[in-house]
Amino acid sequence: MDAIILGLSGGASCLASCAPFFVPLLAVEGGSGRARRSGIMGLFLCGRLVSYIAVGALAGSLGALAAGFLSPGVDRILLRAGWALGGLVLLAGGLAGFENHALCRRLAARERPSLSAFALGVAAGLNVCPPLIAAASRAGALGVLGGAAYFALFFVGTSAWMLPLSLLPRLRAKAAELRAVARIAMILLGAYFFAVLGLLGWS
């Protein structure tokens, strides 16, 4: 039970740290119907759930070494992996928008928004924020399954903060412009996340 409360206590920082993965996706789909956007959101949340469960299991298995989780070690690796993955997906999504170049056209052909949403969800879940560290330290004592379950409940708590994003209205008028801007932003974000934060680890 206190897992959910911990998740809720994460507050807007959950929104803040997951937003960069989700907002560009939403912006690209800004003109589509509500069903499609809810679908994308659902996939994103699934991705986050998957990665949270994985992190929970990991924390549980580390167990007594949970202190090692907190020190510059495991959480750094997870964070950088999250950035790198998220960056790649965003980059791919952004480049797919430009059909002028051959490479971009190939990417566009393979683009599957559902997969991107899921992958971004996974990446967002790996984004280690203070509530996650707290949850990890608590799950450390619970063993693998216990840790996974703890994180699943933690996910429920944090997702409550994501729901406002789904209430954004549909933009019909400027959809094309927004999409173009979003694609460029995705390229920039993707490059920054992948290269600077993920590979090089400079924050």
Partner: peptide
């Protein structure tokens, strides 16, 4: 700290 004591430490 902000996170609360780790269970190991709490134990």
């Amino acid at each position: 700290a902000a996170a609360g004591p780790s269970p190991a430490l709490r134990g």
